[in-house]
Each structure stands twice: as C-alpha cells, then as structure tokens.
Amino acid sequence: MALHEILLQQLFNGLLIGSFYGLVAIGYSMVYGIIKLLNFAHGDIYMIGAFCGLIFLTIAAPVIGAGWPSLIVGLLISMTLVGLLGVVIQRVAYRPMLKAPRLSILITALAVSMILYNTVMILSAGRYRVFPAEVGTESFFIGTLRFTETRIILIVAAFTLMFILHMFITRTMYGKAMRAIALDRDTCQLMGIDVYKIIAITFFVGSALAAAAGIMAGVYYGTIHFFMGFLIGLKAFTAAVIGGIGIIPGAMLGGLLLGLLEAFGTQIPFIGTVWKDVFSFAFLILFLIFKPNGLLGRAESERM
C-alpha cells in the first residue's frame, strides 16, 4: 500500500478506537465536572457493559439470534442496567463522601473499581470470553482501502450516541441543571434544583455511554476480559484531560485525537505496537504538565 493509503486506513482505525475512548471519556468528564471526582471505577463500568452485552446475547441468541437486531436490543438493555448500576454506586459509595476530603473519595473510587473487576474476575473465572455477536465479517474495498460493514456501523453508532448526548446536554433542562451544578452546587440547592437527582442522572448517562462503548468494543475485538477496563479507563481519562476535563465536547474531541494519535503512533518505526501504551501514558503526563486545562479549557483563574 502506498503511504497515503496507510495513513487513510489508520485515520479510519484511529477514529473508530477514538470514538470508544470518547464515549468512555464523556462519563469521566461529566462526573468530574459535576462533583470533581476522578471516578476510577468508570473503566470497570465499561467492562461491566461488555459483560452485560455478552450475557444478553447468550440468552437471546437461541430466540432472536445474535445479529444486529438483537445487538441493538442488547445494547439498549445493557445501557439501562449499567446506567442504573452507576446510579447505585453513586448512591452507596460517593454520595456519603461528597463533603469528605478529596483523598478519601479518590480511595473510595479505587475501592469501587476493585470490587467491580474482582467480582467479574471471579464470575468469569478470569478467562477471556468470546463475545458471541454474529455480525458480518465480509469486507469491501474503496480503492485499495479495506472496510468492514461492522466497523462502519460501529463508528456510526458511536457518533450517533455522542450526538444524542450533545442534544441532551444543550437542549434540555437536565443538561442546563448539570452545568449549573458544576459551577456552584450550593447555590443550585438554594435555587430549588434537586442536586442529588441531577448527579444521579449524570451517573446514569455516563455509565450508559461507557456500557455502550464496552459492547461495541466486544463486537470489534471479539473477546472481552475482566481487566479490559483498566487500560481504557486510563486512556479515557487521558482523552478527557486532552479535551479539558469537565467539558463534554472536549471529551469527545480528546477521545478522537487520542485514537488518531495511537493509530499513527504505531506507524512510527521506533514506537511500534510494543511501546504504544508507554507512548500514550507519556503523552498524558506531558499533557497534564504543560496544558492541564486541556484544549478547550480556559485558564482556571489568575491564581498562582
């Protein structure tokens, strides 16, 4: 393949992976925006989403098959269930900690993350599980570029979800309340906004999107694993920071950028696939140091 074709192919791959990162990053960013919590458990929510999808498909396959229609149903059901799980976690673990020192709530989030992935580890016997989706693997070519139907559908689905979220945030009262709480929780409470309800909705939406990303990752990679959330959690956090943490369009942008960066990074001879993750983390650290407010973030204040 000619160079420009390799680049185009990587562009497509990058956008696809990047849209997964973006979907997970949105949840990170929303939660950080509203209660200033780094939700370490968010990557595990993504993993739970994938396993939810797997369970649904296993049950539904004999009845309605495991093709696209049942995938879509599974996606919606998993999103709902995992969204509710997010709300429960928020209620049990985070809400009592809202006034506690930052260190305590971070450790709480870490504990939740460990509870989630250890539970799944025990239930799944720690093995890789095949994701039982039966979707087309036939590919077609545009010029010399290879596409599969699956990938096209996945990327369209990811962008659709992001678009719906964007509409939700900008066009509804909930979205407005969410942004208001991010600015000043106490005042919102005084103004009669049910702060806890809005926080719960935020967790629901963020978790549901992560679950969707988890199922899509299951379809894309073919196997899932209890520890799959760890790495993507870190990367989605990177994406959220790149875009400016707390800023939702920033999370989407950051996700796509990081996906592209990795896709092209693997093409650089020195980096290759072995150093891919090192490359991402180093990028995260440098980004945090030099541009902690992200691409879309404003300088926080003139405080030194």
């Binding site: 780094l38 971070l106 870190l234 956090f237 993750d277 983390f281 945090l288």
Partner: peptide, 25 residues
C-alpha cells in the same frame, strides 16, 4: 517536580501512568 504543583487528583493519575510506563519499559 512537574506534577506536584498540579491539582492533587491529577497526581493520582500521573503516578498511575508512571507506574505503568515503568513496568512496560
């Protein structure tokens, strides 16, 4: 040196990332 002047919770992520970088390296 570069990260301790950042927000406290960023340090958690930087150290996590550093841990992984070290192991992978």
């Amino acid at each position: 040196f570069p990260t301790l002047r950042l927000r406290g919770d960023y340090l958690a992520i930087v150290t996590l990332g550093f841990g992984e970088i070290t192991r992978l390296t």
